[in-house]
Amino acid sequence: MVRERYLRQLDLLKESVLSLGEIVELIFRDSMTSVIDLDIGLAEKTLVLEPGVDKFEEEIEASIFDLLALQQPMASDLRLIVSSLKISADLRRIVGLSINIAKIPGRMEGGHVKPLVDTKRMADIAALMLKDSLMAFETQDVELAKAAAARDEEVDKLFYSVWVELIEMMAKDTSIISRATNLLFLIRYLERIADHCCNICESVVYLATAEKVRLN
């Protein structure tokens, strides 16, 4: 076996992306808990994590540019590097959206305008999509990636039904507009997070098969 140092760098890259993924899962979960429970303390704990995650993602990006510039990666190595670059960018966007979610509790004086049943369901599906997409990346499991991305449809359906419900509520009672708008943003963020999970799944399919597919 030759190029041992290079191979270690590739292993490390994959591990780093997976570690970033774990942190992103945690931030997303805590941001959702903070908004469901309107737990401002948990929200603040989540908000302070953003700069560290950004820095981690930048380090991953820098190591990718080094590998590209110095090692001339080919074939599956090249695909691992390209998909890692795209997946870490999607993960960073999920963090950004989670941070937006964690800012909501601070603006929700007076409590929720309705019980967050479907919204929580959206968040649970998105969290599962994130978990499975990362697992699929780790194991290069194309079927798992496709199954994870397929759940996006349900997230979209829930998005539209909650959207309509909130608009109708605001039409009837203008005093809730401010708080209901925060929930509109929340479901929009969740819908976007699910889309980024689909992107991750697409990167996994590319990594495993070299084929570019659209999964959402």
Binding site: M1, V2, R3, Y6, P73, M74, A75, S76, D77
Partner: peptide
């Protein structure tokens, strides 16, 4: 073996 060669695993 093509993959191994072009990714520098041997050769």
């Amino acid at each position: 073996s093509t993959e191994d060669y072009i990714t520098g695993r041997f050769g």
